[in-house]
Computed example of a mutant assay.
Amino acid sequence: MLKIIIPLASDHFIDESGQFNYPLPLIEINGKSVIEYVLSDLNKISGEKQLIFILKDQDCTKYNLDNSLKLLVDNPIIVPLKAKTKGAICSILMAVDFIDQDDELLIVNADQIISCDYNEVLQDLRTQHADGGIISFKSVHPRWSYAKIIDGEVFQTAEKNPISNDAIAGFYYFHQAVDFIEGAFDVIRYDENYEGRFYTSSVFNQMILKGKNIKSFPISPDQMHSFYSVQKLKEFEKYLLG
């Protein structure tokens, strides 16, 4: 089965008026919340799948975010975090009890929308017998994680460091979940961190060291919509309106 993990434990957006003082997934753009846009694409993935959400316990108690998710997805798995972790890897590992080692695993950021067909991406990675895969786009801004890619094959990743002009969108595929689990523990064991936090992209370095096949699916920069600021939310609203 394909397990899809969506970390939602991001900070709140607060602008000068206070109108965005909510968890990012609940912020509305053109009448729909961010998480609705994210899920509309993930729900189109064909085949048997299970969605797993990782979110702050306080967002469940204060904003009922878990109830909102249950209205949008059939039988989701909710993993509440009672304390801040040391990065995405640590948060995702909190869901390990809901993952079988031979499951396909997809980890998708919830603060972005990628305008592409996920079925096409997954089919491409499966056809190439990829052990792992990313979606990449062109950039040089140190905000992103990066990959060294030759002929579609990933040879190295780096967090917040442009080692190439191929940035990684928040889409991480693992043909077998065991590769993520073992790689994640290796990242922590070898302390491969950025400013004290452990990031998902680092798992691919550990897989590459073991001879695993990591592939990239390229998209154009205008297909990548990341909501790291209020301005980016407004830009996406304009994009929807054409």
Rank of each mutant, 00 (worst) to 15 (best):
144 W>V: 02
136 S>W: 02
17 S>Y: 09
47 G>D: 10
122 L>T: 08
34 V>G: 02
94 M>T: 15
16 E>P: 00
114 I>Y: 06
68 S>E: 10
146 Y>L: 12
95 A>E: 08
83 A>G: 00
153 E>P: 00
134 I>F: 15
70 K>M: 09
68 S>K: 12
62 K>Q: 15
38 V>Y: 09
56 K>G: 07
150 I>Y: 09
127 T>Q: 14
147 A>M: 03
62 K>R: 15
92 I>S: 02
63 Y>I: 07
79 V>A: 08
137 F>T: 03
134 I>Y: 14
158 A>T: 11
125 L>D: 03
155 F>M: 12
99 I>H: 05
83 A>V: 11
82 K>Y: 10
75 N>K: 13
43 N>Q: 13
69 L>V: 03
55 L>S: 08
61 T>A: 11
21 N>D: 14
76 P>R: 03
134 I>M: 11
64 N>I: 00
56 K>Q: 09
52 I>Q: 02
140 V>I: 14
80 P>W: 05
25 P>A: 02
110 A>K: 09
124 D>L: 08
128 Q>S: 11
120 E>I: 12
100 D>M: 07
90 C>I: 01
101 Q>W: 00
105 L>P: 11
49 K>P: 01
28 E>K: 14
92 I>F: 01
47 G>S: 11
122 L>I: 14
55 L>G: 13
48 E>M: 08
30 N>E: 14
98 F>S: 14
44 K>R: 15
130 A>I: 06
133 G>V: 09
42 L>M: 06
147 A>L: 08
19 Q>W: 10
29 I>T: 09
95 A>G: 07
136 S>K: 06
132 G>A: 03
89 I>D: 02
65 L>F: 04
108 V>E: 07
60 C>G: 10
32 K>T: 01
104 E>Y: 09
146 Y>N: 10
57 D>G: 01
54 I>A: 04
129 H>V: 01
19 Q>I: 15
148 K>T: 14
32 K>C: 02
75 N>F: 02
96 V>G: 00
68 S>L: 05
26 L>Y: 00
35 I>W: 01
129 H>M: 05
146 Y>V: 07
128 Q>A: 12
80 P>S: 04
43 N>K: 15
89 I>L: 07
24 L>P: 00
148 K>S: 12
71 L>V: 00
94 M>V: 01
159 E>F: 13
131 D>W: 01
79 V>E: 11
40 S>T: 13
68 S>W: 00
71 L>G: 05
54 I>M: 06
87 G>A: 08
134 I>W: 09
48 E>H: 07
78 I>F: 05
87 G>Y: 04
145 S>N: 15
81 L>E: 05
134 I>A: 11
64 N>P: 00
18 G>I: 06
159 E>Y: 13
67 N>V: 06
23 P>R: 02
136 S>L: 08
79 V>T: 05
96 V>N: 13
149 I>K: 02
38 V>D: 07
37 Y>H: 13
76 P>N: 06
146 Y>P: 09
99 I>P: 03
88 A>L: 13
133 G>M: 04
47 G>V: 11
79 V>Y: 07
75 N>L: 03
40 S>C: 08
71 L>M: 04
156 Q>H: 14
116 C>G: 03
125 L>T: 04
100 D>T: 08
20 F>K: 10
